[in-house]
């Protein structure tokens, strides 16, 4: 029988490209996702607004000017003032720093925790039972009493150790992360259970790849899509939970502006001055929406089957 093996390899060596870093392919694909690029633009604008904004708009967000309270938009106060005459634009900028930081860090922490537990439970049969029962336990716990206990127990020591702002920040981030990793863990575990029976994992074992590298090289990249989805949803719920905590007096102190706090403060005045609720609401929604689109684009870009289409 004739050997049909193509022997063309040697002939076209001249246009041989060395393997390039796959992140370039990811970026190429990401750029072609219009929603993701728009989301990225909006998200970067929000970041600039909250982090670079205070250099341009140099007004103290805590300055009380009782005579100019409850004002609408004007040149002196583009977003108006609140019931104590504090400038809303400055408060939105400072508050955004905390909200965005809390949202991102809590999401990342919850994601790492959830993914870790999901992969361990899915991949190692012995840990599956105990870890998933712990997950069930956390799902069954009533959230607010748990947070209450966390805050009362750890607030003072943390404030003592890191200072007031950093202490409360660490506490809130950890509290939100600890109560929000369960969905991710469950989704990841389910995917890992299916993936680890695939033949390419068996192939990796036949090569002699140890379990920890199988999970990072073969399992994790393949559960990226559900992780991305729960990450983008996680930011939204982290920002909302933070505002709920602040509202209950468990989060940052009342004179500390956060988007959630401003929203709750404005709630009493919603009929007279709706703008006071609309501004923080719009910013929270925009953040969540833009992060969602970025996550969507990233998920598509990370999948080689969709890439280049």
């Amino acid at each position: 029988m004739t050997d049909t093996t193509p022997v063309t390899a040697a002939e076209d060596v001249h246009d041989l490209r060395p393997p390039r870093n796959q992140w370039w392919d990811v970026w190429d694909q990401f750029k072609s996702h219009k929603g993701a690029m728009a989301g990225m633009f909006v998200f970067i604008s929000i970041l600039l607004f909250v982090f670079a904004g205070p250099w341009v708009w140099q007004v103290d967000p805590g300055l009380i000017d009782i005579r100019s309270r409850n004002q609408g938009s004007s040149w002196a106060h583009p977003m108006g003032t609140d019931q104590l005459g504090r400038d809303l634009l400055a408060r939105m900028m400072y508050g955004g720093r905390i909200s965005v930081a809390v949202g991102l860090t809590a999401m990342l922490l919850g994601l790492v925790l959830g993914t870790l537990i999901g992969v361990l439970a899915g991949y190692f049969k012995l840990m599956d039972g105990p870890l998933m029962r712990v997950t069930d336990l956390f799902l069954a716990l009533p959230l607010l009493p748990l947070l209450l206990i966390l805050v009362t127990l750890f607030r003072d020591p943390l404030e003592g150790a890191f200072g007031q702002a950093a202490g409360v920040f660490a506490l809130i981030v950890v509290a939100i992360a600890v109560t929000s990793w369960m969905q991710t863990a469950r989704i990841v575990r389910g995917d890992v259970l299916a993936l680890k029976e695939r033949e390419f994992v068996l192939a990796a074992r036949s090569i002699g790849t140890p379990a920890r590298r199988i999970s990072t090289r073969h399992i994790l990249p393949n559960v990226m899509s559900p992780i991305m989805v729960s990450a983008t949803l996680g930011i939204a719920s982290a920002i909302i939970t933070e505002s709920a905590l602040s509202f209950l007096g468990l989060g940052f102190p009342p004179d500390f502006p956060t988007w959630g706090r401003i929203l709750y403060d404005g709630r009493d005045w919603i009929e007279q001055y709706p703008a006071r609720v609309v501004w923080p609401g719009v910013l929270i929604s925009l953040t969540v929406l833009s992060v969602n689109y970025i996550g969507d684009g990233l998920r598509d870009a990370l999948d080689p089957r969709i890439r280049g289409r």
């Binding site: 393997p19 796959q22 695939r198 033949e199 390419f200 068996l202 192939a203 990796a204 036949s206 090569i207 002699g208 790849t209 590298r213 090289r217 073969h218 990249p221 393949n222 990226m224 990370l302 999948d303 080689p304 089957r305």
Partner: peptide
């Protein structure tokens, strides 16, 4: 070493051909 039955399932869809062939060399 082993050659597998299902060529569809025995290659990690998220790795390039170079990455797949180089995996045993990496290990």
């Amino acid at each position: 070493q082993m050659v597998f039955q299902d060529p569809q399932a025995c290659l990690n869809p998220r790795m390039t051909v170079a990455g797949i062939i180089a995996e045993p060399l990496d290990e």
